[in-house]
C-alpha cells in the first residue's frame, strides 16, 4: 500500500505543478489545490500508514496510529482552503481589473492586454 500512496503523492505533485505552469489563473488555482493534496498526504504519510488503529483512546484498542501528523494535516487542510480562497479572489481581481487571466507579465503579445486595458 505504501507504494500506491507514494505514487499518488507523486502524481498529484506532478499534475499540480504541470497545471501551475499553464500560464492561466484558473489552472493555477486547480494545480495549487492538487499540490496541497499532495503536501497534506505527504505530511500524513510521515506518521506512517496504519489501518484500523485510530488515535482514539480506548481500552479495547489494539494500538494507535501517530496522532501528531494528523493534527498538523487537519489544520493544514483548513489553511489550504484559506490560501486557495485568497488566490481565487486575486485571480478574479486580475481578471476584472485587467481583463486578462495570464499569470505572466511578458513583453510579448500575451501580456499586452493587461496593460493596454488598464489604460483604457
Amino acid at each position: 500500500m505504501e507504494a500506491l500512496v507514494a505514487i499518488a503523492i507523486g502524481l498529484l505533485t506532478a499534475t499540480g505543478l504541470y497545471l501551475i505552469l499553464r500560464q492561466r489563473t484558473f489552472p493555477l488555482v486547480v494545480g495549487l489545490s492538487l499540490v496541497s493534496y499532495a503536501v497534506n498526504l505527504f505530511l500524513f504519510a510521515s506518521g506512517r500508514l496504519a489501518a484500523g488503529v485510530p488515535p482514539i483512546i480506548d481500552k479495547a484498542a489494539s494500538g494507535y496510529t501517530d496522532p501528531l501528523p494528523q493534527a498538523l494535516v487537519l489544520t493544514a487542510i483548513v489553511i489550504s482552503f484559506g490560501m486557495t480562497a485568497v488566490i481565487v479572489i486575486m485571480a478574479l481581481g486580475a481578471w476584472f481589473t485587467g481583463g486578462d487571466d495570464h499569470t505572466d507579465f511578458s513583453d510579448g503579445a500575451s501580456g499586452e492586454g493587461a496593460s493596454g486595458d488598464r489604460d483604457a
Binding site: I9, G10, L17
Partner: peptide, 9 residues
C-alpha cells in the same frame, strides 16, 4: 519533481 516526491515518500 513528482518522481522525486514519490521516491521520497
Amino acid at each position: 519533481a513528482g518522481l522525486a516526491i514519490a521516491a521520497l515518500s
